[in-house]
Amino acid sequence: MEEITAPGADDADEQRTYTKLITAVSDYRRRHHRAGPDVLGPRPQGLDGEEWDHLTDAIDLYTHARVQRRLEQMRARTAAERAAILPPTSPLRRPPPDTHRPGHRPPSR
C-alpha cells in the first residue's frame, strides 16, 4: 500500500482522490483476505477479476497523474530558476522545446 504515493496536503482534490482509491483498495484486500506487499494479489477469475482489473487501472491512472503533475512542477521550477539566474537577453532563457507530445517517444539509449 505504501507504493501508492500520497499527495501533498495542499491539494484537496488530489487528497480526496487518494482517499477514495486507498479506501477501495483496502476494502478489496479485506474482502479477499489479502495481506503483504502485493497490493491486490494475483488476478482472480470471474467477476472478482473484473474488480481487480478496475482497481489495477485506477492505481495505474492515479500513479501516472501523480508523476505527470510532479514533472510539471519540476519544469515550472526549473524555468523560474533559469529566469531568475540568467540575464534577460540570454538565449538560454527560452524554455526548452516541448518534447512531451502525445505519441512522442524519447530517443532510446
Rank of each mutant, 00 (worst) to 15 (best):
R94G: 14
L86Q: 09
R29V: 02
R30C: 00
A83I: 02
T89E: 10
A76G: 01
T78E: 12
Y62Q: 05
E72D: 09
I22P: 00
P97V: 11
T89H: 13
V39C: 12
R75C: 03
S108K: 06
G49V: 06
A58F: 04
G103N: 07
P88F: 03
R29W: 01
L40P: 12
R31A: 10
L55D: 04
A76I: 06
E72M: 11
R109N: 08
R43N: 12
Q45I: 14
P42F: 04
E3L: 03
A24W: 02
P107T: 02
A65R: 13
I59K: 02
E50G: 09
R43L: 04
R105S: 12
R77H: 12
K20D: 15
S26R: 08
H100M: 07
R82Q: 03
A65V: 06
E14T: 13
R101W: 10
A80Q: 06
G41L: 02
P87W: 01
Q45C: 05
R82H: 11
A84W: 00
S90W: 01
G46D: 08
A83R: 14
A58P: 00
H104D: 15
A24D: 11
Q45G: 11
K20H: 12
E50L: 12
R31K: 14
P37S: 15
K20P: 00
P88W: 09
T5N: 00
D11C: 07
R31H: 09
M74V: 14
R75D: 12
P97E: 11
L47Q: 09
P88N: 12
D27L: 13
M74P: 01
A84H: 01
Y18F: 15
R93H: 07
E2F: 03
D10P: 00
P91D: 03
Q68L: 09
T63V: 03
P91T: 14
R16Y: 14
D57Q: 09
P7D: 01
P87V: 14
P37Y: 13
K20Y: 10
T56S: 09
L55T: 03
D11L: 07
L86F: 02
I4D: 01
V67C: 05
A12G: 05
V39A: 04
P107G: 00
P91G: 02
P97N: 11
E51C: 07
M74E: 15
L61S: 10
D13K: 11
T63Q: 08
K20A: 14
E14Q: 13
L86T: 04
P95R: 04
G103M: 04
L61Q: 14
P42E: 08
R16E: 15
R94L: 15
L92G: 02
E2K: 07
A84N: 07
V67K: 12
T89D: 13
A83E: 05
L47A: 14
A6I: 02
P37Q: 14
R29Y: 01
L61Y: 10
R34E: 00
D10W: 00
P106G: 15
A84Q: 01
Q15L: 09
T99Q: 05
